[in-house]
Amino acid sequence: MTCPICDGGTTASYRPFCSKRCADIDLGKWLNGVYAVPSQDAEDPENAAVQAERNLQIKHS
C-alpha cells in the first residue's frame, strides 16, 4: 500500500499514510473543502445553516 498523498510506503502508526505530515495534509484538504462527500439532498446548504442557527437560538432562549 502506498501513501495517497506522496506515494511513499506506509507505516502502521499512520496507515494509510506514511507520516503525520501526510495525514495532516489530508486532514487539511477535508477541512478546506478540497474533498467533499456528494449529497442527494436538494436543500440549499446556506439556508440549512441559517435555519440551524435559528433553531439553536430558539432552544437557548
Rank of each mutant, 00 (worst) to 15 (best):
C3D: 15
S39Q: 13
Q51G: 03
F17L: 05
W30Q: 10
A49H: 07
A12I: 08
D41L: 00
K29Y: 05
S19G: 08
S13V: 13
G33V: 05
M1Q: 03
T2G: 05
A42W: 06
K59R: 12
D24N: 11
M1C: 07
E43T: 05
P16D: 09
S13T: 15
D41S: 14
K59W: 10
V37R: 00
R21M: 07
D26R: 03
R54Y: 14
C22H: 09
T10N: 07
P45C: 02
F17E: 01
A52T: 11
P16S: 07
Q51E: 14
G28C: 04
A52V: 10
K29P: 01
F17W: 02
K59F: 09
A23S: 11
G33S: 12
A49L: 14
A12C: 04
I25G: 05
T11A: 09
T11L: 12
K59S: 12
Q51N: 14
D24M: 10
D44E: 08
T10P: 09
G33A: 06
A42K: 06
L27D: 13
D24W: 03
P4Q: 10
R54H: 14
G28Q: 03
D44H: 02
K59H: 06
P16M: 07
L31A: 06
C22I: 12
P38T: 00
A23K: 06
I5C: 04
V37D: 00
K59Y: 09
G8S: 11
Q51P: 05
G9Y: 10
P38M: 02
G33L: 03
S13F: 13
Y35W: 11
